[in-house]
């Protein structure tokens, strides 16, 4: 994994990791779960960065994660369902 934080590679990797956890769930639950997790646990600057990456084509993002990142565009942390602590 790159250590260059200006590259979105690390965020893409992290987002895909989240995606892999939710992947066994049904499609809609998985997308919501990924979006919820990103919304509740990622700082706004990180969410904005992954959204910008998606806007540029979202290279490397798994399909479910791409769908979930779409939801980040319009929501703030308070609008996501919360479950669990980290």
């Amino acid at each position: 994994m790159s250590h260059d934080p200006s590259s979105p590679e690390k965020l893409v990797y992290m987002a895909n990791q989240i995606g892999k956890f939710f992947a066994p769930q049904s499609h809609d639950k998985a997308v919501a779960g990924i979006a919820n997790h990103l919304g509740k646990f990622w700082a706004l600057s990180m969410r904005e960065k992954i959204v910008r990456h998606l806007d540029r084509g979202g290279e490397g993002l798994d399909p479910l994660v791409k769908e979930a990142v779409q939801h980040l565009r319009v929501k703030h942390a308070s609008e996501f369902e919360y479950s669990g602590d980290a």
Partner: peptide, 25 residues
């Protein structure tokens, strides 16, 4: 959760400042 407006309000009232509602780093 920091996005919980009711929880934030408890501290905003006590500390006299507006809290950021987004998770930090």
């Amino acid at each position: 959760h920091i996005s919980d407006a009711d929880a934030r309000a408890v501290y905003e009232k006590l500390w006299g400042v507006k809290l950021d509602k987004e998770p930090g780093l």
